[in-house]
Design a protein around this nucleic acid. Structure first.
Length: 427
RNA sequence: GGAGAGAUGUCCGAGUGGUUUAUGGAGCUGGUCUUGAAAACCAGUGACACCGCAAGGUGCCGGGGGUUCGAAUCCCUCUCUCUCCGCCA
């Protein structure tokens, strides 16, 4: 593979890149990069001259041989040249590998509309929908509600597997299944997304393509004895569907919706959200993925975010949308809106979806292009994705927001057709 | 898991060591014809990446390595696809 990322851009706009990365509060050794880049080009031009010579003289040798003339002197000389070429080629390879290592650790450049900031405290609330309900009693956390109703069983999952796993039982399992069916149907039939059902394991290249590797290997589950990783999100297989492809302009935009289980090691999250459904090693998610022309991608991000919000609106769950500041932005993203649902037991909004425009960052790494018009040069597409939405957290939000004083939970109306018309989960 | 066959540019498909600087189609662009379109015919174009201000140069025939003065072509290796056998939800 070894697709060189946009070395040219960094070379010609080093200050701009430096400034953009500073926004993220990330250290990147650009000077080393620029020096290596310089070195690469100088060796390259040297070796290319030698190769030119080799090509020319080889023709000459062929001609001499045809005429039955002596070519021994030229052949001897070319043996030397070939040796040198081999050495220089090795050196170029070495330098390129180093360059690539650096490039793969450089995060995306934040979009100009993204605010500066130091932490998630500096994210900007864009809008809110719905009003958190007034409870006439002390609202309980979803894990208590779920366990009391016999629909969530954390203890048994801990016995069978370990911490951060859950058994859903009875109407709990039904609720989970109803939710992802509802979400996929909504996006596929009302928002124009084509449904896909992806593999749950991908190889290393795909993880590099969407930016999970090489920087975040400890966050992923690796399948022993293989080079496969359990997907942390359907974004990985779905975005990589079009890797190393040149799409026709009229294929764009491409919209996909995918339900999948997601697997995350949650390294570094020890002690955070240890109870309940909020942070699990395995959870279900419905993911929206778009491939668009560069000039359309920001408009498409707004639409994608609205599509995700629709899920929460139709379920009657109060939420807010916030724009992440540069310091809180994910590695691959140029701009991200988080959807946060109201969680009564937390007394605050909790992330339930993250909608991002990656611009051409993933497209470069995965080599996804399109041809703007006949005989035009292929360009990188822009990729976007967002959760539409995280299913486990939606279950948590429904249990908490729709809980009743007697411990039962009312099912949102829109969901009832998927629940066999069950209106309420009782003991 | 075993045996065999394959992988060539946007697509289809030739090419088994030296004028292949990769045949030929399709496609695309322009034209002729037509009220317009299609079809047909004529001409043009001919993938992609890198270096270079440019002229130009280099690389690339699934990935990686090797042999050779010279590799799409020979050798090794990996991946994937197809056919048959075995196993299997």
């Amino acid at each position: 593979m070894a697709v060189l990322l946009d070395a040219k851009y960094i070379r010609s706009n080093p200050d701009e890149v430096r400034a953009a990365l500073a926004k993220r509060k990330k250290e990147v050794n650009l000077d080393k990069f620029l020096a290596l880049d310089e070195k690469r080009r100088s060796i390259l031009s040297e070796v290319e001259q030698l190769k030119n010579k080799r090509n020319v003289v080889s023709q000459e040798i062929a001609r001499l041989k045809k005429e039955k003339k002596d070519a021994e002197a030229l052949i001897a000389e070319m043996q030397q040249v070939s040796g040198t070429i081999k050495e220089l080629d090795d050196k170029v390879r070495e330098v390129e590998a180093e360059l690539n290592d650096i490039l793969l650790t450089i995060p995306n450049i934040p979009h100009e509309s993204v605010p500066l900031g130091e932490s998630d405290n500096d994210n900007i609330e864009v809008r809110r929908w719905g009003t958190p309900r007034e409870f006439g009693f002390e609202p309980r956390p979803h894990w208590d509600i779920g366990e009391d109703l016999g629909i969530l069983d954390f203890a048994t999952a801990a016995k069978v597997t370990g911490a951060r796993f859950t058994f859903y039982k009875g109407l709990g399992a039904r609720l989970e299944r109803a939710l992802f069916n509802f979400m996929v149907d909504l996006h596929a039939t009302e928002h124009g997304y084509t449904e896909v059902f992806p593999p749950y394991m991908v190889h290393r290249h795909s993880m590099v393509g969407t930016g999970q590797l090489p920087k975040f290997e400890e966050d992923a589950f690796k399948v022993a004895g293989t080079d496969y990783f359990l997907i942390p999100t359907a974004e990985v297989p779905v975005t990589n569907m079009y890797r190393e492809q040149i799409l026709d302009s009229d294929q764009l935009p491409i919209y996909h919706v995918a339900y999948s289980a997601c697997f995350r090691a949650e390294a570094g999250s020890a002690g955070r959200d240890t109870r309940g459904l909020i942070r699990q090693h395995q959870f279900n998610k419905v993911e929206l993925v778009k491939f668009t022309r560069p000039e359309d991608s920001y408009e498409e991000l707004e639409k994608l975010t609205r599509d995700a919000e629709d899920v929460l609106r139709l379920l009657g769950l109060p939420y807010r949308v916030s724009m992440l500041c540069a310091a809180d932005l994910g590695f691959s993203s140029a701009k991200t809106y988080d959807l946060e649902v109201w969680m009564p037991s937390y007394g605050r909004y909790v992330e339930i979806s993250s909608c991002s425009n990656f611009e051409d960052f993933q497209a470069r790494r995965a080599d996804i292009k399109y041809r703007p018009g006949p005989n035009e040069k292929a360009r990188y597409v822009h990729t976007l994705n967002g959760s539409g939405v995280a299913v486990g957290r939606t279950v948590a939000a429904i249990l908490e927001n729709y809980q009743q004083e007697d411990g039962s939970v009312i099912i949102p109306e829109r969901l009832r057709p998927y629940m066999g018309d069950v209106e309420r989960i009782c003991k």
